[in-house]
Amino acid sequence: MALSTEASSRLAAQLDEHQDKISELWVRQVAATLRGRLSQGELDRQIRELFRALRETLAAGTTQLQGDGGEVRALLTELSRARALQGFTSTETAISIFAVKEAFATATDVFNAESQAMGDYISFGSFIDELGLFTFATYAQAREEVIADQAEQLLELATPVVKLWDGVVAVPLVGTLDSARAQVVMERLLQTLVDTGSPYAIIDITGVPAVDTQVAQHVLKTVVAARLMGAECIISGIRPQIAQTIVALGIEFGDIATKATLADALRHALRRSGNSDLVRRGAARREH
């Protein structure tokens, strides 16, 4: 049941008449639901702006949010986004708007002035609002769970650990390496080392678009952790530009083996896992 033009102008007149009282009640009620997580000044400003826009829209005879209700809609968009970013729930956000109904009813004294049925209907309306809010909150929560699940799946998809040879596993890293992903990569790689008993791991960074100090830090941590567990890591897939960046940034890979290609890394791992390790060290000591 949309508002008629006459009704909206009558409402605008009412809003005008009880302006201070309505906005004060409105602010007070919203403040109660937000429990001081938003500063009074900010809340005051938001509500007053919204109130003004609402009054003007009604006065202009606009009864729909689409079309001429542009200013109200813009304000609502801004408010909703801000609340979402500040971590308020959908219910808390929606109550900020619904609260105006009760403020209006209290200020204009509809409860006493009109029939009992009217009062009942208003109470019923707010009860239904609550039900609606609950449905919406549940719906939003379910959606968020789906999104979180998908994000997790994506994370797992993006970080496979593959077995290259007996005792050699590899992680081909593709895409930007942020802290969350680096953590997942590290955990999965180390777990695979334990599960397969592989003493060699190759971290291939061919697919990493850029290496900064942060990415290097993540990779180094993984290598050190693997070393603590008794496995050796080889970093491969270092492109020419990346090699230059690494040197320019002053990143030290220390005694960690770095190779240009995955093939080189695999060859290195195979050579090391064979007896030649022994030969090489023996020869080196003999020379001393």
């Binding site: 060859r267 050579r271 064979g274 007896n275 030649s276 030969v279 023996g282 020869a283 003999r286």
Partner: peptide, 16 residues
């Protein structure tokens, strides 16, 4: 001493 190095060398070569 280095008497045994020949044997291990061949092992290493086989892997390579």
């Amino acid at each position: 001493g280095d008497d045994d190095s020949a044997e291990t060398d061949s092992d290493g070569a086989a892997v390579r």
